[in-house]
């Protein structure tokens, strides 16, 4: 039987997720999601207007694995890393085995030459599902406040 979703478990998942990306452990990133999931990066304007298209769209863990494989093997971009700073998750729904929250984020991008810029701000709209001791994202909609992306978006948010 799945154990209840608590704020503590949500916080632990959120903290582990950003640590994974910021520490360049991207191969572990898809493991935060269920096999059938939705990961989408969009903008506040598109989200508000009900526009479906996304900067990144994946509806399976396989697609997330493929994105990391492409970043590692195929795509060309300058070395860079992120530093995520999260606000506190606002749990909007908690049904025990499934919960939803909204978590504000701020992401700085650090280029290999040291240039550091505020790359994105926004909110994670999350749906979690508990499977035994595991808590995973069933859905993570990344809503960026700005419609502008500087140069390119290589690493996932």
């Amino acid at each position: 039987m799945a154990s209840a979703i608590t704020l503590e478990r949500i916080l632990a998942l959120q903290a582990a997720y950003i640590r994974c990306i910021d520490n360049n452990e991207l191969e572990a990133w898809p493991e935060f999601f269920l096999d059938r999931c939705l990961y989408k990066v969009t903008t506040a304007e598109n989200h508000k207007n009900g526009f479906e298209a996304a900067i990144i769209y994946a509806d399976s863990k396989g697609m997330l694995i493929d994105r990391i494989a492409a970043l590692r093997e195929a795509n060309v971009y300058e070395k860079q890393s992120y530093r995520h700073i999260l606000g506190l998750p606002n749990v909007v729904k908690n049904g025990g085995e499934e919960a939803e929250s909204e978590t504000p984020f701020l992401i700085a991008r650090i280029m290999h030459d040291g240039q550091t810029d505020l790359f994105a701000t926004g909110v994670y709209l999350d749906t979690y599902r508990a499977a035994g001791n595991d808590l995973k994202f069933a859905k993570r909609i990344v809503v960026c406040d700005s419609s502008r992306v500087d140069t390119l978006m290589a690493l996932p948010l």
């Binding site: 990066v41 479906e52 298209a53 996304a54 900067i55 990144i56 769209y57 994946a58 509806d59 697609m63 994105r67 492409a70 195929a74 795509n75 060309v76 971009y77 300058e78 992306v149 140069t151 390119l152 978006m153 290589a154």
Partner: peptide, 27 residues
Amino acid sequence: MKTMRLKQGNLAGPAGYVSMEDGCVGG
């Protein structure tokens, strides 16, 4: 068809598998 367009949308745009490089190569 909508789902296909959404998924193939990964190919283009700022995070596009086949267009990401075009964002930086001019720089």
